[in-house]
Design a protein around this nucleic acid. Sequence first.
DNA 1: CTGAAAGCGCTTACAG
DNA 2: CTGAAAGCGCTTACAG
Lengths: 341, 341
Amino acid sequence: MSNTGGRRKPPTIHDVAREAGVSRGTVSRVLNGGHYVSPTAHEAVNAAIRKTGYVVNRHARSLITGRSDSIGFLLTEPQERFFEDPNFNVLLRGCTQALAAHDIPLLLMLAGTEDERRRITRYITAGHVDGVLLVSSHSGDPVAQELCEAGVPLVACGKPIGLGSKVSYVAAADRDGARDMVRHLLSLGRRRIAVVTGPLDTPGGVERLAGYREVLAEEGIEYDERLVVSGDYSRASGEAGAERLLAQAPDLDAVFVASDLMAQGVLTALERAGRGVPGDVSVGGFDDSSAALAARPQLTTIRQPYDRISAEMVRVLLAQIGGEDPAAVILPTELIKRGSA
Amino acid sequence: MSNTGGRRKPPTIHDVAREAGVSRGTVSRVLNGGHYVSPTAHEAVNAAIRKTGYVVNRHARSLITGRSDSIGFLLTEPQERFFEDPNFNVLLRGCTQALAAHDIPLLLMLAGTEDERRRITRYITAGHVDGVLLVSSHSGDPVAQELCEAGVPLVACGKPIGLGSKVSYVAAADRDGARDMVRHLLSLGRRRIAVVTGPLDTPGGVERLAGYREVLAEEGIEYDERLVVSGDYSRASGEAGAERLLAQAPDLDAVFVASDLMAQGVLTALERAGRGVPGDVSVGGFDDSSAALAARPQLTTIRQPYDRISAEMVRVLLAQIGGEDPAAVILPTELIKRGSA
DNA sequence: CTGAAAGCGCTTACAG
DNA sequence: CTGAAAGCGCTTACAG
């Protein structure tokens, strides 16, 4: 207990064995599940562990098991998005906590530049982590590609475009969510519904637009290109997108925005244009991130179940590391009504 | 290169040695700085490394060096703040990148609950990381206390209250920043300047209030308790604080808010009360986080140099791990003028 | 400048 | 159920 200054050498399995009066093999067996150990020995070892304050040396263990018992959280998006988007935080926290429950540390890896990508790919394929939680849904991500080919267990957040079906992912039901929102806007009496999509090389970009088109078609409303612009999920792109929409289709009476952050930008542009929300224009977001509550008015939006998404990502990844086959998990979304629509 | 399915066994130092026609000791020497190695051997080893695609096994290295070559980024704040506060993101990213430049992975550690705190303290004191970047400035943080006593190299972000002077930290010049802001508000002709402080058990809470009081005293303006309330750095606490201020001191003509996020809340409350910003009331924030740009109007604020803060935290921590004494680094702030004051 | 050898702390067949 | 022993991949004095 008393550790006066400096770090002293921590006890090893050898110290525990001596204290318990057994061999190191027996201590190790207790540490690894307690199979083939007599109750007496088991107890003696546990007591010795408590007494010595023993904690396993993970390096020694990893050296022999070949596993690192750690997981990488890899972000290949441009750096700025990471700051700005509250969703990342929620995901990162959820994954860290889910892993902590398994006593597995999370290594944060940022691969923004080409150099970083190379370094990190090398690090991962060298086996320094047992698997990777991937946040990046742009198509043709070279890092994801390489990791896949190297056989590194991998779970993506959102369906990765262009990586084939052998890669695991966890995603929200984007299309259904979009459908719910557009139907909600219709139920409000809106007919000139514009849309600000996400990047069209991401599933969220493609699928949410698809949901929008589906509902319009089902209702016999003609698809009007002037009502459609794309953003990059940033607040600024939402603002710029709304400006283009107002110029192209001044008669719009609603905007479905593919992310809450972009919706914040849309609100700014509408306010500047003198359009009241929700009086003149209804605005619907997507995510139910903290941006939805920060917006004025607060955003009616589609909740992505980020808590469940992170938990499932960890579950699927650990299963895959354990030898299971890749899997895709789709989680339902929910319409959250607030002031903006 | 071609790695068809599955993870094959990576090359070891032994493979490199054989390829280069030298002993493993020589390979190791090349890996660790190249001292006492002939140019010929050096070249042969490098070529062999390239040819085999060798990457050092960090577990084996750590086992013998006793270092983990990894750093923990420890957050002991309640979880919610982590999401909401954009400053954390900037810090986390900056630290990750600064460490990446040294090829040192960052382990993200969240110690929100008592259980997590215990688990993480154990993990760290067991030597699983070489040092810790600490984000928590509440006084009497038990984790920080324990780590300090265990002799774990530690650098805090912001001066830790109650940990004595032997712990390293990097902080912005809180008091000076607050002084600059209050002087700016005075220069605008404001005289009834209110303040929403941070938690008074954090240096940011105490010091920014101190700066406010100093300037008022210097200008012969009486300190009025009704103009002072405290928040917890959250948006909601800013909103609530402004409401109390409006009730206690309806004649206020400016508010200095100790964080941008709280300032967003203040803006919401002022708007609801029908007070125009900056017409009726000038509002000054602190941080220059993304919240400052998201606010309407955009916030005049005090920039904390988070890029430099994270870089310095890493520098000081690595120095300390290398045997240097603890150090405190204070970085200057800057007044950023925008629309709110 | 270089090789042979010891040893870091653990796990895991292998005999008993 | 248990111990003795080999071995994971590396670094580092130690001789030369």
